[in-house]
């Protein structure tokens, strides 16, 4: 079926973009790849019939999150240093592969016989049936805003601290050096 082919293509490309986003040494390309993942996922969502979520995903996931990431990058500067992994990569790969295979195998029966689809309008479900979720979400957003304000608002703007200046940074440096040595051994 042609539909299957589309889905497979989209999944693979999304996986590839995700991989690029994860592997890239530069943060800006990473953010852009993430936006691609988001766009591809929203296409899949659309094809599945979840039109509204597809729009939300496209605007929030691909748009807002990317903007936020880029904004954070611009605040921080060009600290895009992403050195070698601490965990041996084969171990990480094995762990993830085994878990993913097991999860995939166990989840498979779920999709083997899909039920007939009862179409319901998102707005109805979200605002009527799931109104309580929305209320809790308001609390969550409030907490998040408080968090950002609490973390970032500065009464006085202190000098930015650069590496090697604080004692903690020095300690951290020592640990990092040690970790790096362990990786290379």
């Amino acid at each position: 079926m042609i539909e299957n082919f589309y889905y497979l293509f989209l999944s693979l490309v999304a996986g590839f973009c995700a991989y690029r986003a994860m592997i890239s040494k530069q943060l800006l390309p990473s953010a852009l790849y993430l936006a691609c993942v988001s766009a591809l996922v929203s296409v899949m969502l659309y094809m599945l019939g979840a039109h509204e979520v597809a729009v939300i995903e496209l605007s929030v996931g691909a748009g807002l999150v990317t903007v936020l990431l880029v904004y954070a990058l611009s605040v921080i500067g060009d600290d895009t240093y992403d050195p070698t992994s601490i965990i041996p990569k084969p171990l990480a790969f094995l762990l993830v592969a085994a878990t993913a295979l097991l999860v995939g195998w166990m989840a498979y029966p779920l999709v083997s016989q899909p039920a007939a689809n009862g179409e319901v309008l998102l707005a109805n479900v979200l605002w009527k049936q799931r109104a309580l979720d929305v209320w809790v979400q308001v609390a969550l957003i409030f907490s998040g805003v408080m968090g950002v304000l609490g973390l970032l608002s500065e009464k006085t703007h202190p000098q930015e601290i650069h590496p090697h200046e604080t004692q903690a940074a020095a300690e951290g440096e020592a640990i990092a050096v040690q970790i790096e040595r362990e990786i290379h051994v």
């Binding site: 965990i87 990480a92 097991l102």
Partner: peptide, 16 residues
């Protein structure tokens, strides 16, 4: 990284 590896490892063990 190791902390997250702990989570995944535990998940794997529980699944098995």
């Amino acid at each position: 990284s190791w902390n997250v590896a702990g989570i995944l490892g535990a998940l794997l063990a529980v699944l098995i």
